[in-house]
């Protein structure tokens, strides 16, 4: 079998074991994402042909097209890609840690906590600029995830306990959210609802710049943890045997995962199921070596959000619906399919 190629260099002494197929699929996914991005920028209430989109990119398009492409649609798509990638990688990490294919950032309360914080912000902060909302949501998500982790801690964190505590705390946060919505006025509640569902509506370069440092920082941090993720896959005992400080690494990885998901939720609201779907599809395509799995998950996650947003802003014209509706509408049946599939495999 020639699926693998080994690359060795003498100076510096490095050795890589490359899975050609997985690398190729990653490359194809990346190309596919680029195509989806260009197409989705062209589509909308005003249709712009592909060629014009490309011309606008390089600065040769008409002024109107450049405005639409560069200032309106591109930031929205860029935020979609970053949000999708963050959620997907966050989910891939959690699934490795919890060793349960059904784990996702929604499960440990990040999303529910961020939502509660954001709705509280909409309700109470009357004179404060909306620009602070992502930060408030991020803090809410982080605190809730920390709360879940701490309450699930009992001489280490068992995956099941984490999941059950997460569902409970999410329910509590959901109740808080409803409470805030009840005591606020209706038109504000409508804002809150759109946000809860998860939307990239009206994203500008400011949002891109807010999200970019976090996403890059934590995605890079994840790359350095790949070998621990791979070790973790083998089970606690083996991982410990080959020299991984399990509880320390687990805490670090959960922190990275929560930070990624929290920032994404902070900017775009509760876009659900990406953290679940993207890693799964990626696993089917490239296998479970994290060096290939993580980039593939990130690219797929980005693609899913871009597509969901595309549906949201084109299919129901003149409405511009939150992308989160469609990720949930596709994600939930997919999740159910996963529940089924575990009957025959594994």
């Amino acid at each position: 079998m020639h699926r693998h190629v080994v690359i060795r260099t003498k100076k510096p002494a490095l050795s890589f074991h490359v899975n050609k197929r997985a690398l190729g699929i990653n490359f194809i996914l990346f190309l596919l994402l680029s195509v989806v991005i260009v197409l989705s920028i062209g589509l909308g209430s005003l249709h712009i042909p592909v060629w014009e989109v490309i011309k606008a990119f390089v600065g040769a398009g008409s002024e109107q097209n450049e405005l639409i492409v560069l200032d309106w649609r591109l930031p929205r798509v860029v935020v979609s890609v970053m949000v999708g990638a963050s959620l997907a990688v966050s989910g891939a990490i959690l699934q490795s840690l919890v060793r349960n294919p059904l784990a996702s950032p929604d499960l440990i309360g990040t999303t529910a906590g961020a939502t509660a914080a954001a709705v509280a912000f909409i309700t109470f902060a009357k004179d404060v600029s909306v620009q602070w909302m992502p930060l408030v949501a991020l803090i809410g998500g982080l605190l809730t995830a920390t709360l879940t982790y701490l309450t699930a801690w009992k001489e280490g964190v068992s995956p099941f306990r984490l999941a059950l505590v997460g569902v409970c705390i999410s329910a509590g946060m959901g109740a808080l959210t409803i409470f805030f919505m009840v005591i606020t006025q209706t038109h504000k509640a409508s804002n809150a609802l759109g946000w809860m569902t998860g939307t990239v509506y009206g994203m500008s370069w400011v949002n891109v710049m807010t999200l970019l440092p976090w996403t890059v920082l934590f995605l890079v941090a994840t790359i350095f943890q790949i070998r621990y993720l791979n070790a973790q896959e083998l089970g606690d005992d083996i991982a410990r045997g080959i020299g991984v400080a399990i509880d320390k690494k687990r805490l670090l990885l959960i922190a990275i995962s929560v930070a990624l998901a929290g920032a994404a939720v902070g900017v775009a609201g509760g876009i659900s199921f990406i953290g679940l779907m993207a890693p799964h599809i990626a696993r089917r395509l490239v296998g479970s070596a994290y060096g290939y799995l993580l980039p593939a998950s990130a690219v797929l996650g980005g693609m899913l959000v871009v597509l969901a947003d595309l549906i949201g802003r084109t299919v129901f014209l003149p409405h511009d619906l939150p992308a989160g509706i469609f990720t949930a509408a596709i994600g939930a049946p997919f999740f159910v399919y996963l529940l089924y599939k575990t009957r025959n495999h594994q």
């Binding site: 499960l107 199921f273 949930a328 939930a332 999740f335 159910v336 529940l339």
Partner: peptide, 10 residues
């Protein structure tokens, strides 16, 4: 629990 959560999300 999980299928409850999924169906509820849908």
């Amino acid at each position: 629990t999980l299928s409850g959560a999924a169906v509820a999300a849908f």
